[in-house]
Protein backbone atom coordinates (compact mmCIF):
# COMPACT_ATOMS: atom_id res chain seq x y z
CA UNK A 1 0.00 0.00 0.00
CA UNK A 2 1.36 3.37 -1.01
CA UNK A 3 1.13 5.63 2.02
CA UNK A 4 1.80 8.86 0.14
CA UNK A 5 -1.07 11.34 0.32
CA UNK A 6 -1.95 12.23 -3.27
CA UNK A 7 -2.17 15.80 -4.51
CA UNK A 8 -5.70 16.34 -5.75
CA UNK A 9 -6.70 18.68 -8.50
CA UNK A 10 -9.10 21.61 -8.47
CA UNK A 11 -11.39 21.35 -11.48
CA UNK A 12 -12.13 24.65 -13.17
CA UNK A 13 -13.60 26.15 -16.32
CA UNK A 14 -11.58 26.83 -19.47
CA UNK A 15 -12.27 30.25 -21.00
CA UNK A 16 -10.02 32.19 -23.35
CA UNK A 17 -7.06 29.92 -22.61
CA UNK A 18 -7.31 30.48 -18.84
CA UNK A 19 -8.68 28.28 -16.07
CA UNK A 20 -11.04 30.42 -14.00
CA UNK A 21 -13.42 29.26 -11.29
CA UNK A 22 -17.03 30.10 -11.93
CA UNK A 23 -17.52 33.81 -11.23
CA UNK A 24 -20.57 32.68 -9.25
CA UNK A 25 -18.30 30.82 -6.83
CA UNK A 26 -20.50 27.74 -7.20
CA UNK A 27 -19.39 24.13 -7.54
CA UNK A 28 -21.21 20.83 -7.74
CA UNK A 29 -20.22 17.32 -6.75
CA UNK A 30 -19.12 14.83 -9.37
CA UNK A 31 -19.39 11.11 -8.63
CA UNK A 32 -18.32 8.01 -10.47
CA UNK A 33 -20.88 5.44 -11.65
CA UNK A 34 -20.64 3.73 -8.24
CA UNK A 35 -21.58 7.03 -6.64
CA UNK A 36 -18.13 7.55 -5.12
CA UNK A 37 -17.16 11.22 -4.80
CA UNK A 38 -14.64 12.24 -7.45
CA UNK A 39 -14.40 16.01 -7.34
CA UNK A 40 -16.13 19.34 -7.07
CA UNK A 41 -16.59 20.82 -10.56
CA UNK A 42 -17.21 24.49 -11.25
CA UNK A 43 -20.88 25.27 -11.86
CA UNK A 44 -20.79 27.80 -14.67
CA UNK A 45 -23.21 30.72 -14.62
CA UNK A 46 -24.75 32.99 -17.23
CA UNK A 47 -21.86 35.41 -16.75
CA UNK A 48 -19.32 32.64 -17.39
CA UNK A 49 -21.24 31.91 -20.59
CA UNK A 50 -20.99 35.55 -21.64
CA UNK A 51 -17.27 35.64 -20.85
CA UNK A 52 -16.82 32.55 -22.98
CA UNK A 53 -18.66 34.16 -25.93
CA UNK A 54 -16.40 37.21 -25.65
CA UNK A 55 -13.29 35.04 -25.57
CA UNK A 56 -14.55 32.95 -28.47
CA UNK A 57 -15.35 35.95 -30.66
CA UNK A 58 -11.90 37.33 -29.90
CA UNK A 59 -10.36 34.05 -30.97
CA UNK A 60 -12.37 33.73 -34.18
CA UNK A 61 -10.45 36.28 -36.26
CA UNK A 62 -7.03 34.68 -36.03
CA UNK A 63 -8.28 31.08 -36.06
CA UNK A 64 -10.55 31.50 -39.07
CA UNK A 65 -7.80 33.24 -41.02
CA UNK A 66 -5.08 30.77 -40.04
CA UNK A 67 -3.99 28.60 -42.92
CA UNK A 68 -5.76 25.27 -43.29
CA UNK A 69 -2.37 23.56 -42.95
CA UNK A 70 -1.87 25.31 -39.63
CA UNK A 71 -5.31 24.36 -38.30
CA UNK A 72 -4.71 20.77 -39.34
CA UNK A 73 -1.41 20.68 -37.49
CA UNK A 74 -2.97 22.16 -34.36
CA UNK A 75 -5.68 19.47 -34.30
CA UNK A 76 -3.06 16.83 -34.91
CA UNK A 77 -1.00 18.28 -32.06
CA UNK A 78 -3.99 17.87 -29.72
CA UNK A 79 -4.08 14.20 -30.71
CA UNK A 80 -0.35 13.88 -30.04
CA UNK A 81 -0.64 15.35 -26.57
CA UNK A 82 -3.70 13.21 -25.82
CA UNK A 83 -1.74 10.15 -26.78
CA UNK A 84 0.84 11.08 -24.14
CA UNK A 85 -1.91 11.28 -21.53
CA UNK A 86 -3.63 8.10 -22.73
CA UNK A 87 -3.53 6.38 -19.33
CA UNK A 88 -5.04 9.36 -17.57
CA UNK A 89 -7.86 9.58 -20.11
CA UNK A 90 -8.54 5.85 -19.76
CA UNK A 91 -8.79 6.25 -15.99
CA UNK A 92 -11.03 9.31 -16.37
CA UNK A 93 -13.35 7.57 -18.81
CA UNK A 94 -13.48 4.44 -16.66
CA UNK A 95 -14.53 6.48 -13.64
CA UNK A 96 -16.94 8.66 -15.56
CA UNK A 97 -18.66 6.06 -17.68
CA UNK A 98 -18.19 2.90 -15.62
CA UNK A 99 -16.57 1.05 -18.51
CA UNK A 100 -14.03 -1.74 -18.13
CA UNK A 101 -10.37 -1.18 -18.92
CA UNK A 102 -10.57 -2.58 -22.44
CA UNK A 103 -13.67 -0.62 -23.40
CA UNK A 104 -12.28 2.58 -21.88
CA UNK A 105 -9.07 2.14 -23.85
CA UNK A 106 -11.05 1.64 -27.04
CA UNK A 107 -13.04 4.81 -26.40
CA UNK A 108 -9.90 6.86 -25.73
CA UNK A 109 -8.07 5.46 -28.75
CA UNK A 110 -11.06 6.21 -30.96
CA UNK A 111 -11.20 9.77 -29.62
CA UNK A 112 -7.52 10.31 -30.44
CA UNK A 113 -7.94 8.75 -33.88
CA UNK A 114 -11.00 10.91 -34.51
CA UNK A 115 -8.95 14.04 -33.95
CA UNK A 116 -6.39 12.77 -36.41
CA UNK A 117 -9.21 12.07 -38.90
CA UNK A 118 -10.59 15.58 -38.60
CA UNK A 119 -7.09 17.12 -38.59
CA UNK A 120 -6.69 15.71 -42.08
CA UNK A 121 -9.91 17.39 -43.22
CA UNK A 122 -8.62 20.90 -42.47
CA UNK A 123 -7.06 21.37 -45.89
CA UNK A 124 -9.47 19.13 -47.82
CA UNK A 125 -13.03 20.00 -46.87
CA UNK A 126 -13.01 23.15 -49.02
CA UNK A 127 -12.06 21.01 -52.00
CA UNK A 128 -14.95 18.65 -51.34
CA UNK A 129 -17.62 21.22 -50.40
CA UNK A 130 -16.46 24.00 -52.75
CA UNK A 131 -16.48 24.22 -56.52
CA UNK A 132 -16.45 26.46 -59.53
CA UNK A 133 -19.79 27.13 -61.18
CA UNK A 134 -20.18 27.17 -64.98
CA UNK A 135 -22.47 30.20 -65.18
CA UNK A 136 -24.03 31.09 -68.54
CA UNK A 137 -22.07 34.26 -69.16
CA UNK A 138 -18.62 35.84 -69.24
CA UNK A 139 -17.88 35.44 -65.54
CA UNK A 140 -15.59 33.38 -63.38
CA UNK A 141 -17.61 32.07 -60.46
CA UNK A 142 -16.60 29.94 -57.52
CA UNK A 143 -18.09 28.79 -54.22
CA UNK A 144 -16.10 28.11 -51.08
CA UNK A 145 -17.16 26.97 -47.60
CA UNK A 146 -16.29 29.30 -44.73
CA UNK A 147 -16.71 28.90 -40.98
CA UNK A 148 -20.01 30.10 -39.52
CA UNK A 149 -18.39 31.83 -36.53
CA UNK A 150 -19.03 31.27 -32.82
CA UNK A 151 -20.71 27.93 -32.15
CA UNK A 152 -22.20 26.95 -28.78
CA UNK A 153 -22.36 23.20 -28.28
CA UNK A 154 -23.91 20.96 -25.66
CA UNK A 155 -21.65 17.92 -25.45
CA UNK A 156 -23.15 14.42 -25.25
CA UNK A 157 -24.16 13.46 -21.72
CA UNK A 158 -23.09 9.82 -21.96
CA UNK A 159 -20.00 9.74 -24.12
CA UNK A 160 -17.92 12.07 -21.98
CA UNK A 161 -14.73 12.05 -24.06
CA UNK A 162 -15.29 10.45 -27.46
CA UNK A 163 -18.65 12.21 -27.90
CA UNK A 164 -17.11 15.49 -26.77
CA UNK A 165 -14.18 15.24 -29.17
CA UNK A 166 -16.54 14.21 -31.98
CA UNK A 167 -18.57 17.37 -31.39
CA UNK A 168 -15.67 19.81 -30.98
CA UNK A 169 -13.39 18.67 -33.81
CA UNK A 170 -15.76 19.15 -36.79
CA UNK A 171 -16.70 22.59 -35.46
CA UNK A 172 -13.19 23.98 -35.05
CA UNK A 173 -11.39 22.29 -37.92
CA UNK A 174 -13.02 24.65 -40.45
CA UNK A 175 -12.10 27.77 -38.46
CA UNK A 176 -15.09 28.09 -36.14
CA UNK A 177 -14.61 28.64 -32.43
CA UNK A 178 -16.60 26.74 -29.83
CA UNK A 179 -18.07 27.13 -26.38
CA UNK A 180 -18.90 23.64 -25.23
CA UNK A 181 -20.88 22.68 -22.17
CA UNK A 182 -19.41 19.37 -20.99
CA UNK A 183 -21.44 16.36 -19.86
CA UNK A 184 -23.04 17.47 -16.60
CA UNK A 185 -22.55 14.27 -14.62
CA UNK A 186 -19.31 13.24 -16.33
CA UNK A 187 -17.27 16.43 -16.78
CA UNK A 188 -13.84 15.20 -15.74
CA UNK A 189 -12.61 13.84 -19.09
CA UNK A 190 -13.58 17.21 -20.60
CA UNK A 191 -11.57 19.05 -17.97
CA UNK A 192 -8.57 16.85 -18.61
CA UNK A 193 -9.00 17.63 -22.29
CA UNK A 194 -8.78 21.37 -21.53
CA UNK A 195 -5.35 20.77 -20.03
CA UNK A 196 -4.35 19.10 -23.28
CA UNK A 197 -5.84 21.95 -25.32
CA UNK A 198 -3.94 24.51 -23.24
CA UNK A 199 -0.64 22.87 -24.14
CA UNK A 200 -1.30 21.99 -27.79
CA UNK A 201 -0.89 25.28 -29.67
CA UNK A 202 -4.67 25.84 -29.79
CA UNK A 203 -4.97 29.64 -29.74
CA UNK A 204 -6.87 31.03 -26.78
CA UNK A 205 -10.60 31.37 -27.26
CA UNK A 206 -10.86 28.67 -29.94
CA UNK A 207 -12.08 26.02 -27.48
CA UNK A 208 -13.88 27.11 -24.34
CA UNK A 209 -15.26 24.53 -21.93
CA UNK A 210 -17.93 25.13 -19.32
CA UNK A 211 -19.09 22.63 -16.73
CA UNK A 212 -22.48 22.79 -15.06
CA UNK A 213 -26.11 22.49 -16.02
CA UNK A 214 -27.03 23.03 -19.69
CA UNK A 215 -30.58 23.92 -18.67
CA UNK A 216 -29.11 26.93 -16.86
CA UNK A 217 -26.33 28.04 -19.25
CA UNK A 218 -27.53 27.01 -22.70
CA UNK A 219 -30.53 29.38 -22.97
CA UNK A 220 -28.15 32.34 -22.57
CA UNK A 221 -25.90 30.98 -25.26
CA UNK A 222 -28.86 30.23 -27.56
CA UNK A 223 -30.18 33.78 -27.30
CA UNK A 224 -26.77 35.51 -27.36
CA UNK A 225 -26.48 37.90 -30.30
CA UNK A 226 -22.83 37.04 -30.93
CA UNK A 227 -23.34 33.28 -31.17
CA UNK A 228 -23.94 32.15 -34.76
CA UNK A 229 -24.92 28.53 -34.33
CA UNK A 230 -25.86 25.96 -31.71
CA UNK A 231 -25.15 22.25 -31.57
CA UNK A 232 -27.73 20.47 -29.42
CA UNK A 233 -26.19 17.01 -29.63
CA UNK A 234 -26.09 16.62 -25.85
CA UNK A 235 -29.52 17.99 -25.04
CA UNK A 236 -31.58 15.08 -23.76
CA UNK A 237 -34.75 16.93 -22.78
CA UNK A 238 -37.09 17.58 -25.70
CA UNK A 239 -38.52 20.55 -23.86
CA UNK A 240 -35.11 22.15 -23.35
CA UNK A 241 -34.20 21.51 -26.99
CA UNK A 242 -37.37 23.25 -28.11
CA UNK A 243 -36.76 26.22 -25.83
CA UNK A 244 -33.21 26.55 -27.11
CA UNK A 245 -34.42 26.46 -30.71
CA UNK A 246 -36.93 29.19 -29.94
CA UNK A 247 -34.19 31.35 -28.40
CA UNK A 248 -31.88 30.65 -31.33
CA UNK A 249 -34.49 31.86 -33.83
CA UNK A 250 -34.14 35.40 -32.53
CA UNK A 251 -30.87 35.77 -34.43
CA UNK A 252 -31.45 33.10 -37.10
CA UNK A 253 -28.87 30.71 -35.66
CA UNK A 254 -27.95 27.53 -37.45
CA UNK A 255 -29.07 24.52 -35.40
CA UNK A 256 -27.85 20.96 -35.32
CA UNK A 257 -29.89 18.48 -33.27
CA UNK A 258 -28.95 14.95 -34.32
CA UNK A 259 -30.32 11.65 -33.19
CA UNK A 260 -27.84 10.02 -30.78
CA UNK A 261 -25.13 8.68 -33.05
CA UNK A 262 -22.89 5.68 -32.54
CA UNK A 263 -19.72 7.53 -31.59
CA UNK A 264 -17.47 4.57 -32.31
CA UNK A 265 -18.42 4.56 -36.01
CA UNK A 266 -16.46 6.68 -38.48
CA UNK A 267 -18.46 9.89 -39.02
CA UNK A 268 -19.46 11.43 -42.33
CA UNK A 269 -19.10 15.12 -43.21
CA UNK A 270 -22.58 16.01 -41.91
CA UNK A 271 -21.39 17.49 -38.65
CA UNK A 272 -18.70 19.60 -40.29
CA UNK A 273 -21.11 20.74 -42.99
CA UNK A 274 -23.63 21.96 -40.39
CA UNK A 275 -21.36 24.82 -39.38
CA UNK A 276 -20.00 26.19 -42.64
CA UNK A 277 -21.42 28.82 -44.97
CA UNK A 278 -21.10 28.77 -48.73
CA UNK A 279 -19.65 31.97 -50.17
CA UNK A 280 -19.95 32.51 -53.91
CA UNK A 281 -17.76 35.02 -55.74
CA UNK A 282 -18.36 36.41 -59.24
CA UNK A 283 -15.93 38.28 -61.45
CA UNK A 284 -16.27 39.24 -65.11
CA UNK A 285 -13.95 37.78 -67.72
CA UNK A 286 -12.35 40.13 -70.22
CA UNK A 287 -9.06 40.93 -71.83
Amino acid sequence: MNDRVEVRKTYKLFIGGAFPRSESGRTYEVHDTDDKFLANAAKASRKDGRDAVLAARKGFGAWSSATAYNRGQVLYRVAEVMEGRRDQFIADVRAAEGLGDKKSARVVDTAIDRLVWYAGWADKYAQVLGNTNPVAGPYFNFSIPEPTGVVAAIAPQNSSLLGLVSVIAPIIVTGNVVIVVASTLRPIPAITLTEVVATSDVPSGVINVLTGDPAEIAPWLASHGDVNAIDLTGVTSAELAKNLEVEAAGTVKRIRRPAQPNWLATPDLGHLRSFVETKTVWHPLGA
Binding site: R254, I255, R257, H271, R273
Partner: peptide, 12 residues
Protein backbone atom coordinates in the same frame (compact mmCIF):
# COMPACT_ATOMS: atom_id res chain seq x y z
CA UNK B 1 -28.37 8.50 -45.55
CA UNK B 2 -25.34 8.58 -43.24
CA UNK B 3 -25.80 11.84 -41.32
CA UNK B 4 -27.68 11.45 -38.06
CA UNK B 5 -29.05 14.99 -38.09
CA UNK B 6 -32.70 14.77 -39.05
CA UNK B 7 -33.69 18.10 -37.50
CA UNK B 8 -31.34 20.49 -39.26
CA UNK B 9 -32.07 24.17 -39.42
CA UNK B 10 -29.30 25.13 -41.76
CA UNK B 11 -27.18 23.89 -44.56
CA UNK B 12 -27.63 20.15 -44.79
Amino acid sequence: ATDSDVHAKGMS
